[in-house]
């Protein structure tokens, strides 16, 4: 019943899926077969098919995180055939479609792997470390109500656009998953540069970068070695330039802030 192409052939696939009962148990790869997969299905719809099959057989369906299924909420997070969000560039798992695969393919599906992202169950991981990094300083401290008129501070369009590009990070964690060092620098740098570029962020510029980096280190993420996997796998194209900005901000803050701690 393919929508776009009535002649598209359904596919049969072998899935190697990471199964793990809970946070403190060990897991393993389990092989499943799925049949009659339409090339027009999204990857998660293919997993829905698998899960419905498992459920009908009385087996435990595969747990995975997902929500909006339109590439913006950042919930979905599968490591597919050795790649964050699978083989297609600039795409989240939910927007990856089965036409990118062929009949008879074997697909390996794993959770993000990072010490700071413990597995909840199967393919679902805990990414609250990202929240704690934002809590450490990823904001402008303005209480509701006291804001001046929105047009009070003109911001050059070019600066505003660059800040926007950094701000589009969806917090999925693909950068950490792809990085050899499980580093979260692309994530952290996206927020730091957004707020470093905008005048609104300047007041807390130094403390922000100091605190966010400290929290990032505390969470146990690795250090960036400029490999570039993160940016290559980022579904929304956050640029490595942001990491340079982060480094610069950090260095400048440490060198000039009055913070002795």
């Amino acid at each position: 019943m393919a929508g776009s192409n009535p002649n598209a052939k359904p596919m049969n696939l072998t899935l190697n899926v990471w199964r793990q009962a809970g946070r403190h148990t060990s897991g393993k790869i389990v092989e499943y077969q799925v049949k009659d997969i339409s090339p027009d299905m999204s990857f998660l719809e293919m997993l829905d098919v698998l899960n419905e099959d498992l459920l009908r057989k009385g087996d435990d369906p595969v747990a995975f995180d997902h929500d909006c299924r339109e590439g913006i909420c950042g919930s979905c997070d599968l490591f597919i055939n050795g790649r964050s969000h699978g083989p297609e560039k600039g795409t989240t798992t939910c927007q990856l479609h089965m036409r990118k695969f062929s009949d008879g393919d074997t697909i390996t599906i794993e959770p993000w792997r990072a010490n700071a992202f413990p597995v909840n169950k199967d393919l679902s991981v805990d990414r609250s470390a990202f929240d704690r990094i934002i809590q450490a300083g990823g904001y402008v401290s303005v209480n509701t109500g006291g804001a001046p008129d929105g047009n009070e501070i003109p911001i050059p369009k070019e600066i505003s656009d660059r800040a926007f590009e950094a701000a589009t990070c969806i917090g999925c964690g693909a950068c950490v998953a792809a990085c050899k060092n499980a580093s979260a620098m692309l994530f952290v740098s996206a927020k730091v540069s957004q707020l470093a570029l905008l005048p609104q962020g300047h007041v807390e510029r130094k403390t922000r970068v100091e605190n966010m980096v400290a929290q990032m280190d505390k969470e146990g993420f690795g250090a960036c070695t400029n490999i570039g996997s993160c940016a290559a796998e980022c579904p929304v194209g956050i640029s490595l330039e942001n990491i340079a900005i982060l480094n610069r901000e950090f260095l400048a803050a440490k060198a000039t802030s009055n913070n002795l701690a």
């Binding site: 904001y139 402008v140 303005v142 509701t144 109500g145 006291g146 804001a147 001046p148 008129d149 929105g150 047009n151 501070i153 003109p154 911001i155 050059p156 369009k157 505003s160 656009d161 800040a163 926007f164 701000a167 957004q194 707020l195 905008l198 609104q200 962020g201």
Partner: peptide, 22 residues
């Protein structure tokens, strides 16, 4: 009108004209 002001103050990168205004 207050919402826009509040969001701008938070660093929400709304689209802007070349002159820097919203």
């Amino acid at each position: 009108v207050n919402i826009i002001d509040q969001c701008v103050a938070q660093g929400v990168p709304f689209a802007r004209e070349y002159g820097g205004l919203l």
